[in-house]
Amino acid sequence: MKQRIQKIITLNVNGRDYDISVGEGRTDMPESETLADTLRDRLGFTGLKLGCGQGACGACTVIMDGKAVTSCMMMTMDCDGARIVTIEGLADAVTGELNGLQRSFVENCGYQCGFCTPGIIMTAQALLEKNPEPTEEEVREALAGNYCRCGTHYSAVESIMAYVEQKKKEKEGCAQ
């Protein structure tokens, strides 16, 4: 048996820690690996999509330490200790129940081919965590880096705003 010293980084993804060994061995993660590749290929979170690999389409958006980031533009090496939420982390981990934002997309059919949708939902989720009652304009600004070719420019935003309005109503209901 051989022994060697290993470099390990830890990512917390959807509430669970993953240790990843870094190096040049066949099963090691090369230092040049992007977060998108690590999440998809190494850890199996294929919900985030690779659209352009250039940080220009938003399909690979995940929430890292509360902020929406394009994971194809992050080196995994720079993410040691980060708390990451992917689209797989939004639904209730025990019951599988969709979160309110996801449900709103289903009810309003805020998608077509669906390839951009995980990135759009994660971008919106990050916005809502900071600003629970955004205006439509603020939502649109947040989504400015998300590319969609099918034309969900209206229906995706409607889905998000429907959720915002519903939350507002619920809040008002509680206050009364």
Binding site: R40, D41, F45, T46, G47, L48, K49, L50, T86, I87, E88, L90, A91, L98, Q102, R103, F105, V106, E107, C109, Y111, G114, F115, T117, P118, I121
Partner: peptide, 21 residues
């Protein structure tokens, strides 16, 4: 009615070609 792929799309479980290994 809800679209067939709907829940899979919003949860990231919809499988596109690049998701297969």
């Amino acid at each position: 009615s809800k679209r067939l792929l709907g829940e899979q799309i919003v949860t990231g479980r919809a499988k596109y070609t690049g998701d297969f290994k």
